[in-house]
Write a protein that binds this DNA or RNA. Structure first.
Lengths: 367, 367
DNA sequence: CTGTTAGCGCCTTCAA
DNA sequence: TTGAAGGCGCTAACAG
């Protein structure tokens, strides 16, 4: 058990300057120190430690011992400079606190690091705008050997992608000529809507257009397109008044449903009997708004989301699932393929199939 | 609007090998090319571009133009090697898909990157065990100028922290002699429990001991200690049978409440009238379990969580809040202070005060 | 204010 | 199988 100093309200803890410990001065030595200790040349140390062939077993062992003893670890900068590779990959994402992105990153992480790459995180945040060239491609190109782009590339001018000059693998959006993991968002919208149609709904709304789609993030628009298609295929004329711009947050879903309610009241019509939400988070917001107003789900209102968020089952939320962590893993595979396979590895796009998880926020309409 | 190729189900996209564009060969040139183009020496380019003093305005402008024209960006590795600083900070966290950690990281990110540092992400994941020296301190020390440790340091042997040789700032746990952002977890447990006591509860359970506490992650244990103290101060003998080991996930909370139910049934007693959960996620799980069994909240059962998770309001969850994103920001400040202030900056610990957010999962007991 | 001179620590030919 | 020499691209210390 580790000591915890601040039982009450203390504030500043004294600094005991760590005394340099000449004995076990970890990480102090460079490759030449190791070489000296092992009685070989630096070149041999380099070869031995990296497992390159052409080093006798005994020499390798001796080098390992020396390195271990000195706590030697090669300087990343030095070796990157010498080799022209950084052993790092960049991860571009709009946010990381939205569950979807965090889960994708987590899915990718293991493979990435197990191949010896570090992961540089670049949350684009509010800067993800149309103008703000994200993290300046030029800067990235010298810093990483590859890039994982989550939902961002579409917002970059294509030039900026060119400037990258390192493999880029996308998740959630696709750039022609680049590897990527993709779910067919149109189909997601289609499936969600069909599920509701199949239950007998005919007045179905859509919560989730994304204002940011203005600059190329087409996920929401695609899902909406699927929704429209499904309706049309069922011979139903989509009513644009039933579509809300919500963004991706819970609050958007809440406000969206509220707004629909107002609209309906003002126009003297009733609320649609069901809604497709662009994400589970938006769906959760809608469910909350419904509950606050005493609208029963699914008797009075059905709601279906997208993602199968870790917390969705708590809401009994019916949803179109996508294997999020697996998408991350797949993206990592594609990226490694590009980085290590070199020009030999032709870019490829992997399609992920969405699933349907039926819980109990959807049911037949009331009448 | 960017082109999206895969309308239907296409799979592999052809690779158009990006043709080297000799005209605007971005990122191709080194500092010497820029120097040549600007008609100055490399040293001057370096000074000019980094905004160092002692460069005439006209020269600086010329250099900027040349650099811009060539799309020049300094190589991070080269400059790191030459300066002996990496301009990167490492972020150690058990996971990133748990909301708390993602939010802290997001909170820290802006300040970190605005000061010119990259963020290296090291999720410890399952490896966070007692033995597995996390990310090997020695490796980190050559790779980053500072480390942000989220809940991890306590699990590292202190030696390993020493070996780091770079500033380390902790969040959520404290190491003597190091800077850190801290919430008083004992007090959190105390406040949560007092809230329930204040409502008139006397049989109060605790959902949330963490099996991993075994190796030093004391947050859960501390909150539990606060719970025990509050009960004792109220003259109530804490009943160990009312404490569950749940870990941090939703599922733990669900299982924990279920187990309490079984225990109560087997012993022929009733469930406690209220529970303190170690986190909002655990509380959500417990609420779910209660709902599944028709237990009404808060009439039959009160539940209080900790964190004020982004989604907590959807559950009307009463909770002890901690300003999570601000913790991240503060930690970033402390870290920058250490990294840039050098030895002058003495380590300090910042206490964050928890708050109480009363919603409606807590209320007076039934009888 | 600017240029010259040495490295930073490692990797990689090329010889031995 | 091993060593010696040179360079990766940039920065810092010193001259001028």
């Amino acid at each position: 058990m580790s000591p915890r100093a601040l039982g009450g309200g203390g504030s500043a803890t004294g600094s005991t300057a760590l005394p340099p410990d000449p004995d076990r001065m970890v990480g102090a030595g460079g490759i030449v120190e190791v070489a000296a200790l092992a009685g070989v040349s630096p070149a041999t140390v380099s070869r031995a430690l990296r497992g390159l062939p052409g080093v006798s077993a005994s020499t390798r062992a001796a080098v390992r011992v020396a390195a271990e003893q000195l706590g030697y670890v090669a300087s990343a900068s030095a070796s990157a400079l010498a080799r022209g590779r950084t052993s790092a990959v960049g991860v571009l994402a709009p946010w990381i606190s939205r569950w979807f992105f965090a889960a994708v990153i987590e899915g990718a992480q293991e493979l990435i690091t197990s191949h010896g790459y570090d992961m540089l995180l670049y949350p684009l945040g509010a800067n993800a705008g149309p103008d703000a060239g994200p993290v300046d491609a030029r800067a990235l190109h010298k810093r990483v050997d590859g890039v994982l782009g989550l939902n961002v590339p579409a917002s970059m001018p294509t030039d900026s992608l060119r400037d990258l000059r390192v493999p880029l693998v996308t998740v959630g959006s696709t750039v022609p000529g680049l590897s990527g993991v993709q779910v067919d968002d149109v189909r997601i919208g289609l499936e969600a809507t069909r599920h509701l149609l199949g239950l007998g709904h005919s007045r179905i709304g859509f919560l989730g257009l994304d204002p940011d789609d203005l600059y190329g993030f087409t996920v929401a628009a695609d899902r909406h397109r699927g929704y429209v298609q499904a309706l049309e295929q069922a011979g139903i004329e989509p009513d644009p008044r039933l579509t809300e711009v919500t963004g991706w947050a819970v609050q958007g879903g809440e406000a969206g449903l509220g707004h629909q309610l107002e609209l309906a009241a003002a126009a003297g019509r009733t609320l649609p009997t069901a809604f497709v939400a662009v994400s589970d988070e938006v769906a959760m917001g809608a469910l909350y708004a419904a509950r606050c107003r005493g609208i029963r789900v699914p008797q009075d209102l059905s709601v279906i989301g997208v993602d199968d968020h870790d917390l969705s089952y708590l809401f009994d939320l019916t949803t179109v699932s996508q294997p999020v962590r697996r998408q991350g893993r797949l993206a990592a595979e594609l990226l490694l393929e590009q980085m290590e396979g070199g020009a030999a590895a032709r870019p490829r796009v992997v399609q992920i199939d969405p699933g349907l998880v039926v819980r109990s926020t959807t049911g037949p309409p009331r009448d």
